Amino acid sequence: MDVDVGIVAQRGNERAQQLTEALLDVLESDSVAVAVDEETGDAIDVVSVPVTEMADSDLVVSIGGDGTLLFVAREVGSTPILGVNLGEVGFLNAVSPADAVDVVTDLVDRLRRGDPLERRTLERLRARGDGWTLEPALNEIVVHGPRRGHGGGATIEIRVDGTRYADGHADGVLVATPTGSTAYNLSEGGPLVHPTADALVVTQMAAEDSMPPLVVDPGAELELAVTGAETAYAISDGRNRHQLESPATVSVSLAADPVTLVGPRTNFFDGLEKLE
């Protein structure tokens, strides 16, 4: 069968661009249809497409750090993604640059034969309110006051399946997936969650009268009710945000479209050793 591959390289990274060129040479010589993201295409002088158009590909290769893969996941939805790690920790990117060509060509051969790829799905979160919905978050949803620090928080009540868990003044509240437990959640004192765990974590941020971080079933309906501030924000993966006018309620639940990763798996515990 014909195979279409998309390649997205970390912006401004020469190593990522060079690896893109190496993959292009090998794949195109094997009659594979390859699409490259626009910025990389400009850098290496090849035809390119918007990343959103790679959603119809059989495989998208993300070359960079976890941030690059987060960007790719936002753009291509449930299309299978292979992460090549140019970062330090790389919880999402299991493939080293030295192994990238071999791993990609092996996956392409499997797709051509019609062999099933080993896939794993990563749940995403969706935040919504009165008339608005944020793009899905692979790491976390954060609701916080007008700014972090003294005088900048808000009163945020946390409700789980309609029952109050915590209520008080805080810089904000963070809801993380297992994938996101090693990111912002960890820096705010939340627990590490093994990537195979079926759970979400709710962590208060600099609360005046804090409760411990709470691990909940991923099917739980979470509501974050904001009062006591003129304005507040709901933010998805540190990128997409919606400004709130207090009082406001943000509902957080699993998104319908998880991210699909293929190829080798990362070693979670090896990654923890690289955390600062």
Rank of each mutant, 00 (worst) to 15 (best):
I235C: 14
G189F: 13
V201R: 00
D217H: 01
A220K: 06
Y233E: 13
L192I: 14
Q204N: 03
V202I: 15
T203C: 11
V216R: 00
N240H: 15
E230N: 14
D237L: 06
P218K: 04
N240D: 15
E245W: 10
A220V: 05
V201Q: 04
A207D: 08
T203R: 03
A206F: 10
H194I: 00
V215E: 01
A207S: 09
L200S: 05
L224F: 05
A225N: 07
D209H: 13
A234V: 10
L224E: 06
T196M: 01
V193H: 00
A234N: 09
L244Q: 12
L200F: 04
V193L: 07
T203L: 06
V202L: 08
H242E: 15
V226C: 10
T203M: 09
D217V: 02
G190V: 07
A199F: 04
P218H: 06
M211Q: 02
G190D: 11
G189T: 13
T227P: 09
A229K: 10
E245V: 15
H194R: 01
A225V: 15
Q204A: 12
T227L: 04
V226S: 08
D217C: 01
L224G: 02
T231W: 03
H242W: 08
E245Y: 11
R239F: 11
E188H: 10
E245N: 14
A207I: 07
A207G: 10
M205W: 03
M205E: 03
N185M: 09
G228A: 12
D217W: 00
A207H: 08
P195R: 02
E188M: 15
A220W: 02
P191Q: 09
A234I: 02
L222S: 01
E230T: 13
T203P: 06
P195E: 04
E208V: 13
V201D: 03
V202T: 01
E188L: 14
P212Q: 05
M205G: 01
Q243A: 15
A197D: 07
A206P: 03
A199E: 05
A206W: 00
N240M: 10
E188V: 14
D237W: 05
A225E: 14
G228M: 11
A197T: 04
A220F: 09
S187R: 11
